[in-house]
Each structure stands twice: as C-alpha cells, then as structure tokens.
Design a protein around this nucleic acid. Structure first.
Lengths: 252, 252
DNA sequence: CTTGACCTTGACGTAACGTCAACCTTTACT
DNA sequence: AGTAAAGGTTGACGTTACGTCAAGGTCAAG
C-alpha cells in the first residue's frame, strides 16, 4: 500500500514540489516508481519524511539532515552543533538590534551625527592602512586587535568622546574663529590626546614622529571626503587641518 | 580627483566585486567611466558608499537601502520597519532554540519518544483533514485555532499527557496482555478522555458520534504508519485499534 | 472521446556577492 | 621599446530550499 506524491504531501503537511526536491537531492527517494515515472511512497517513507520535516523545523539544513538519516552523524551531536550556531545567530541579532536602535535614536536627535557611527576606531585604523609604510607596517594589526579587544562599553565611551570632539570642531569651524585661536588650539590638543589613545600610531608610541603624523593626518582629513562628511564638509576638514598644523608646529 | 575601483574598495573596507555589483543593480554608479570601461569614483561617491555599508551592517537589504538613498523612504522609517522584522526574527530564534534544546533532552532521555514531538495536537488535526467530510468540514479550523491559542505551558502539558499515554500503550502491547483486559480497557478509557479534550471532534461535541469516531480512528491508526512510529510499530497500532474497538462497543 | 485532475521534467527566480575564466589596459622595469 | 606584473572588464556559475510557471504525458470519470 502506497500513496501518490500529493497524498503523502498532504499527510505530512508539505508540498509535492518539496518531495520532488528531496528526490532530486537524494534526501528522500520514492519507495517505488511507476512505469510512467510517477513517484509512489510507502509507510516507512512517510515516517522518514516526518523526521525530515521535524528536523527542518528545528532549523537544520538539508545536508545536515541527510547526515543524520544516513547515520553518519548522531542526531544529538548534529542538534548540539546546530544549537551553537543558533546561539551565535541570536547573539548577532541582539547586537544588531541594539545598533539599529541607537542609530534611530541618533537620527532622531540630530542628523548631523549620523555618519558618526562609522567613524570609530576602525576608521583611523583603515586610514593608516593606506599609508602604512609611512608609519610602520604593523600599525594596522596592532590597532585592529586593540579595537576588537575593547568591551562594548569602552567602545561606546570612545565613540562618545569622538562625537563631542566632532561637535566642537563643527561649531568652531562654523563660528568663523581662526584656526590659530586659543580655543581652537585647545580643541587641537584634545584631538591629539584622543589620538594618543590609539595604539600602533606614532602618537601612542614613545619617541614617535608625532609632529609628522599629526600634520600628515591633517592633510589626509582634507583629501579624504569621509572625514569631511563627519566634520561639516570639506571646509570643516580644512579647518581641522589648519588647526592641527598650527598646533603641531607650536607644541610637538 | 577620483579613485579606481580597488582604491575606494580599500578605503571603504569592501571589495571591488561588491562595487561592481552595486553598479549592476544601480545602487551606486561610478562618478565617471573611462573610455576603457574603467570605473572611477569621487568623494561624494565614497561618502555614499560608506552610508550604504553602514546601513548594510545594520541588516537592511539592498533594495531598502536604495529606497533610503533615493529619498523615497525616510531613513528612520526604514530602520524602524527593519527593527520590527529583527524583533520577530529574534523571537523565532528564541523559540527555535527552546525546541532544539528540548528535542536534545528528549533524545538523551529515551530515543523511543523522539518522534513524539511531532505527534501533538496538530497531528490529530491534520489527520482529520484527510477525512474531514466524515466528521464535519470545519473540524480543522476549530482544532487548529484551539491549538494555536494554547500557551506553551499548556501545550507542554498536553504533550506530556500524550507521552505517558503512549508509553503505557507500548508497555501494554509488549506485555502480551489481551486488548480486552481490564487494564488495557482502562488505557482505552484514558485515550478517549484525552481525545475529548480536542475541540472540533465528535468526542468533544455533545451528541457526536463518538462510537463511530473512535472505531474509525482505530482503523486509521493501523493504516497510518506515522501512528505506528509513535506507538511501537504496526503491532502497537493494531493493539491500540483492537482495544479501542472493544472499548467503543462496550462503553460508547 | 473529452474533460479535468494529477503526474513528469526542465528552467528561471530568490540575496548578495565569491570565485573562476578569458581577455584587455595600465604601470613598472629592463 | 618590449615585457611582465598588476589591475580592469564582462560574463557566468554557485550558494539555500524550494515557489512558480511552462509544455506535455497519464489516468479516472462522464
């Protein structure tokens, strides 16, 4: 006694297309094939199908299910491995949700700082990547591992600090003050201090060419539009560069 | 001043393939194209790219990102909608993880009851689907909404009850007792009582053809291998059928 | 004999690129 | 100037698990 493809599909709560697919990939062959090519399934096949669908609902991939059915892998082992993957996914989702929430909040607050999120430790890192020969080949690796090793809280603090700095730079640039003025020079000092917190850069290393690095960075800020996007346009970047140049000349 | 495809790719932290893809789907066109077909990107393009990558990291799909960039959709609105989807995904994951955990526990406990998980309220439901004309067309809908309206705790209780019943049936069938014996008849009584808990069936409706339904179910238990898989093979199903028939004749 | 209802085998579409493959350009070096 | 190493271009397939036509046989019923 066996059933046609539609019949088992209904019995198992799936579609005939799925059955054909499982046949194609060798996951579940029909127990019998008519001379006309029709697929027929018997009781054991139906039970197998139910097991397949059960595992599928748990999120296992078809190849993994095939392994279990072929007894190449223990069911418990397969599910345990799958569970780990699920846990990682859940974790990723949780963090992504937090990121989206924060981005929304930031956007609602003041659109000016939206791009801020991408201008974190990575940016300076990646930035150096372009000129790594100039200040050391391993700067990237050092900087990258430093950033990765930070806790979310620490990263947030870092970003907050950068955001304040950025806001102050924009305000200064828009106010029309001179880059050489005392208040702007204090901003430059804060900027350099902030830079000193990034390992792998000359500003962090004792005896590094801080002066050359800072003035060089200033030029890059102007040349790289990403920077301008975060500091009030190209004019903002120019302003920052000028201020940093003055500061470097006078203090470094 | 512009850059080659590899240059911006590095600057933005992505690959040239991605850039070509974005060009293909119209998400980000190069600012200039050389006579040789080379793609060149300028500052604004780089900034756009950064925005794209930022949104992508938040999990937005490329079409959604395109809408945001074309100002067809507000960024906040797009992210809010995305957030809902993320929340649903997280919820789904959480429940799936719980299912996997429980399945693992069940498997570790006693392999015999693994298939149990799929033999829940749905099965009787779906079961009736095949013969719905026999006992009412709306049986499925009633039964389905009933099951869906149950809390996870209630569902678990239901499953536990079924599991005990199943274990007792298997034990009885294997012990070699007669289906008409007092102890087995008590099992049959419990089985019918359990069936009465499922709305939309004649066992639950006042004045329903309980006798016909129960004996009919017994026949189906034998005919349907899924049942045998949960009740100790075809012999188990036959045993259950016989016991139910006796019970129905004598008590219903 | 003619409908339907059901079956079959292709084959495209999906999300977002990774990864060759085959071939042309530019850059750098002898 | 010649050549080899980078780097660029356009296809096109592969990935997950089927959904969804499309074109054309098969079977049960009237």
């Amino acid at each position: 006694m066996d059933w046609s493809i539609q019949e088992i599909a209904k019995m198992a709560g799936t579609t005939s297309r799925t059955l054909r697919h499982y046949d194609d990939i060798g996951l579940l062959k029909p127990s019998r094939t008519g001379h006309n090519g029709y697929r027929y399934y018997d009781g054991p096949a139906l039970v197998q199908l139910q097991r397949i669908l059960l595992l599928r609902e748990l999120g296992l991939g078809l190849p993994a299910i095939a392994e279990v059915l072929n007894r190449e892998t223990d069911t418990v082992k397969a599910l345990s491995g799958h569970l780990e993957w699920l846990a990682r996914e859940q974790d990723r989702l949780t963090r992504q949700i937090a990121s989206v929430r924060q981005t929304i909040d930031t956007l609602k607050g003041d659109g000016k700082y939206m791009a801020q999120d991408m201008f974190d430790g990575f940016d300076h890192t990646q930035y150096k990547d372009e000129v790594e020969e100039r200040w050391g080949k391993d700067a990237y690796a050092t900087s990258d591992s430093w950033w990765r090793s930070m806790s979310p809280d620490e990263k947030q603090q870092w970003k907050d600090r950068l955001q304040k700095l950025s806001a102050d730079w924009i305000a200064a640039a828009e106010s029309g003050v001179s880059p050489g003025s005392a208040e702007v020079q204090d901003l430059a000092r804060r900027h350099v201090e902030w830079l000193r917190g990034i390992p792998g850069t000359p500003t962090a290393a004792p005896g590094g060419d801080v002066k050359g690095y800072v003035t060089g960075l200033g030029e890059m800020y102007v040349a790289d539009p990403r920077f301008g996007a975060n500091y009030g346009g190209e004019a903002g970047a120019t302003f920052v560069r000028d201020a940093l140049r003055v500061y470097a000349e006078e203090n470094l």
